[in-house]
Design a protein around this nucleic acid. Sequence first.
DNA 1: CGCCATTAGATTGTGCACAACTTAATTGAG
DNA 2: CTCAATTAAGTTGTGCACAATCTAATGGCG
Lengths: 158, 158
Amino acid sequence: MDRPTGTGEDYLRLDNQICFSLHAATRAFNGVYRGALKELGLTYPQYLVMLVLWEHGELPVKGIGERLKLDSGTLSPLLKRLEAAGYVERRRSPEDERSVTVRVTEEGAALRRKALGVPRAIAAATGLELEEIQELRDRLHALAARLDAVDAGALGCG
Amino acid sequence: MDRPTGTGEDYLRLDNQICFSLHAATRAFNGVYRGALKELGLTYPQYLVMLVLWEHGELPVKGIGERLKLDSGTLSPLLKRLEAAGYVERRRSPEDERSVTVRVTEEGAALRRKALGVPRAIAAATGLELEEIQELRDRLHALAARLDAVDAGALGCG
DNA sequence: CGCCATTAGATTGTGCACAACTTAATTGAG
DNA sequence: CTCAATTAAGTTGTGCACAATCTAATGGCG
């Protein structure tokens, strides 16, 4: 192999690790959630949507998208599946016919009670103390914010 | 709203944050990589596959899957696309006709040289020092390992 | 040798992420 | 008021992740 130069090879190795670790951690989380959410009949992204809806009661599609950073191309079919499952209702807003309001149904509210046990199981699965989880969360949040800014703003230098 | 009990509500909020932060950070990374890899004609998962192939020269599909924790359902079509792009070759192993060996082509090797600049750009985009990146990577690695173990082993207590 | 369990890949089907485009409603400038 | 720009959802197409299933090759055992 070429001798590491400090300009390419070792950076490449390092980057490999951080991005792959993130990728792997996300998929590992997905796997654990998949098991925990199976009996609720939710996928992990559906669970995220239900979390914001449980918190806010009802939101326009756009509002859900802003909170989860997802666009209509992802949300429209996902919400249809949640509606088909009976957990949410969608209806055009009377004030603005362009907007669709998503509301938790009674069945969706009942699901919330069943979901209350999930987070504790997940937290236990991580094997981390609350403080560690919080710290990691804060770092990831800051990292995502930074990356989003760079992505949108086309790379400010340093 | 129900008063937080310490058993459900606040855990739920916390878990929301950690899992969502991870989710959001991964997608933010994907977005930045998407931009950086566009001129190479690679997606981010394709880039990961090329990284392990650049490192090992040639590997069976199974070997790639072990390193990236991906199964044939994901890798088969992805490798076909990489082959169609001319970056890899696939051929049945003569010793074991069940196995398919994936090898980097000359064009794939040339791509590597073009890819050398990518990691530095990504590292810069994170706005983190190398030490911070390493620490975060280690934590995520440990977290993923823990979650994978729990997932496979169906939840040991504690 | 003949047969079955195992193994490696490929295939199929579902769901998510995202880009690009379409449709319909709303807003705003002239 | 009229028409162009904007906005909110939805639709389409590509690619990844993963479960389930299938095919073909291998290996082990009687």
